[in-house]
Design a protein around this nucleic acid. Structure first.
Lengths: 192, 192
DNA sequence: TTGATAGCGTGATAAATATCACGGGTATTT
DNA sequence: AAATACCCGTGATATTTATCACGCTATCAA
């Protein structure tokens, strides 16, 4: 299972064999079944999680029980609750698997250590975080400016790999519209 | 003008006198008048900008000319288009002043250099970015889950300093609702 | 095979919001 | 001082969206 991660790190961060060994030494491989939690609200997020195979979601639950999906993540994505991870506070969010998945976990102290000892990795992660932030800004822009149809199309073209794997209702949740509305909007513009 | 920035860096990043000198050496002080652009769509963002005094906004313009405000920034905040800054691509956004303001600009190569030579600064900026990201995630959550009234109240309590300085229409733009709706919602709940 | 569940579509209705329009007040400019 | 622009509120109306309800289909487990 580590091989996929190794390739990823080699290509993206240009790590050497020695550096990869150092990473491997702190990796924990884990299989998660569909619907299983990786992180549950109230728990503290201790891990960085890299997805080797499968699909997970990061979501919060409103007071009335409605689920709001903040992110999806598939192969070669990272997922964790950075807020809980950084602050050490209990998480407001949940992470669970939408498919049977295989992930690699790196404990926080180990991760910090890797970042210190492998500058190339630190550098890569920094760039990744920068792009995540920019992506968030763009998503906020689409939240406040796009119509439902635009949101739907934009999601479809931006994340086709996710789009074809997750149920429509979850995309609706991610976009902030009701499942029914999204269903209607999609059918309206597909018939014209 | 640099004094405010110096105090900020001393308190937040615990820089020494020597380190502060190094920072000062690359700082450019600038006064911006109300309505003046700091960054205009199509330009590349070359600077990190720290606000000593005043209030700025970061916004994009939709196809129909509507302005969508992505961020406000006041004293002791940073503002820049990180996407253009990082990629070197022309910016999709604008930054302009809502009040006569005083800012400090640090050119990208200089900033990169400071980050390398002053680890404490790098560390501080990293934490700042991490919190910005978490704030974005929380904003996305409120975008997709809050009612208009909740968005309004949340903004008011989260950013009272901004709330009382910028016109309602701009807050509406930031929240992604029309000025009229926000005006009505505010008056409805204030009369009950 | 049967029962349970998840996912999607869709009708009917209510609620929320956008849009257009206008006026009044206040600040800003000339 | 007069003219202009900005900001806010609010009415009227159209549009969009949410909500509730129901049925259909596919999948999966007992």
């Amino acid at each position: 299972m580590f091989e996929a991660f190794e390739i990823y790190l080699k290509v993206k961060a240009d790590l050497t064999a020695d550096e990869l060994d150092a990473v491997r030494a702190v990796c924990v491989e884990k299989k998660i079944r569909k619907r299983q939690y990786l992180l549950q609200e109230g728990d503290v997020c201790h891990y960085n999680c890299f997805i080797v195979k499968g699909c997970l979601r990061y979501y919060r639950v409103g007071e009335d029980g409605t689920e709001y999906i903040l992110r999806f993540a598939v192969e070669n994505w990272w997922i964790s609750d950075t807020e809980s991870y950084n602050t050490g506070n209990p998480s407001k969010s949940n992470i669970d698997a939408l498919e049977n998945s295989e992930v690699i976990l790196i404990d926080k102290p180990d991760f910090v250590n890797l970042m210190m000892t492998i500058p190339k990795l630190k550098n890569f992660i920094d760039r990744l975080k920068a792009r995540s932030f920019d992506a968030s800004q763009n998503r906020i822009m689409s939240n406040i400016s796009y119509t439902t149809e635009e949101k739907y199309k934009h999601f479809m073209t931006s994340f086709p790999d996710i789009f074809y794997r997750v149920p429509l209702g979850m995309i609706a949740s991610y976009l902030g519209v009701s499942r029914e509305t999204l269903s209607r909007v999609r059918n309206q513009f597909s018939h014209k």
